[in-house]
Amino acid sequence: MRKNFIFLAIMLFALTAVKSQSTYSAFHPGEIWKDNKGIHINAHGGGILRKDGIYYWFGEHKIAGPAGNTAMVGVHCYSSKDLYNWRDEGIALSVSADTTSDIAKGCILERPKVVYNKKTGKYVMWFHLELRGKGYSAARAGVAVSDRATGPFKFLYSYRPNAGKMPFYPIGTPENEKVNCAAPVSKSDGFFCRDLPGGQMARDMTVFVDDDGRAYHIFSSEENYTLHVAELNDDYTGHTGKFTRVYIGHQTEAPAIFKHAGTYYMIGSGCTGWDPNAARWFSAKSVFGPWTFHGNPCKGPGSELTYGGQSTHVLPVDPANGKFIFMADKWAPKNPVDGRYIWLPVNINNGAISISWKDKWTLN
């Protein structure tokens, strides 16, 4: 009798555990999305790396309450083979207990993106970093590396990019878009010139690896007035000094970049804090531009607020055939851990992109 009771208890526990795990066969934008442990995925402001047939999702680990908007844990990692169901791989980069560290517990660590460097065999993580207790004044880029996709990542350093460097100007750049620090003509130019000696501000960001293996760091700079597209060095852990400015003076955040059929596309947002606004998209024939602004890619009801979300990444699923997923965060600043994820298919038609809301959809 005792053995039977123990067996039944084990079976009941196992069935309960299985029941707590959700198996998905479709995307449900904006709803709770549970991992293999039955817990809402905790990878906000994130991005995805595909390596050897496995997708790795990296994002900010949030906690409940207002303190959750600072980094109390680090960067969380999940893995998946089908994009619907995600396995918790733990914390890929932990914040430090050392209060003198750039990534001390309580700092602001946002929008982590991981890329793989074929030459070095290293996984490289970039993120927006604000020093503990300093608000948003530091505006630094941080970098960490790992031998494994899931980590642990080792923090290297943080800094402001391209100190003392002037922008690269694509052929055809109008003279009024070329910065003149002797006589800045706009607020944005003024911020650029102010920061020139010590490096440019780097806030909302992403990283993009091109077909030739060159990598680029795209970030909001100049008090968020202007985007920078900056080339990374061969090992992806620093900047070369070559960069260009995009959509000068128009306050763009949350850049997400992808490439299809020889054209570069970028989706971003305006600057309204945690509140959603209309998305915006750009295109270019060169990663350094010139970039052309095209307006809002979202269509239909809710499009004026990006369906309540803000861009974070565009995931190539089948890029050769134009299959990409737009990833956005639906922020919950009062209880950050409850932030939701909005994933929607990107439609590409004659070089133009559009995104429409779907309550439920599949990769088919």
Score class of each variant (00 low, 15 high):
M1S: 10
L15C: 13
V18Y: 15
Q21F: 09
H28D: 02
G30K: 02
K37A: 00
I41H: 07
G46F: 11
R50I: 12
G53F: 02
G59S: 11
K62L: 02
I63G: 14
A67Q: 13
V73E: 07
C77K: 04
S79T: 15
L83G: 02
W86H: 06
A92F: 12
L93M: 15
S94R: 13
S101E: 04
D102N: 13
K105C: 11
L109A: 09
P112Q: 10
P112K: 06
P112R: 00
K119I: 09
T120A: 05
T120K: 07
K122G: 01
M125F: 14
L129H: 06
A138H: 01
V145W: 03
V145Q: 01
D147W: 15
G151H: 12
G151Q: 11
F155D: 00
N162P: 08
N162C: 13
N180S: 13
N180F: 15
C181F: 14
A183S: 15
V185P: 00
C193S: 04
R194L: 13
Q200G: 06
R203F: 11
V207K: 01
F208Q: 07
F208M: 12
V209L: 07
F219K: 01
G238W: 14
H239S: 13
E253Y: 10
E253P: 10
A254G: 03
I257S: 04
H260G: 03
A261E: 14
Y264C: 01
Y264D: 01
G270R: 12
C271H: 09
P276N: 01
A278H: 04
S283I: 04
K285F: 03
V287F: 12
G289K: 02
T312H: 03
T312R: 11
H313I: 05
H313Y: 15
L315A: 03
V317S: 00
D318Y: 06
G322H: 08
A332S: 15
G339S: 15
W343I: 09
W357M: 08
W361G: 03
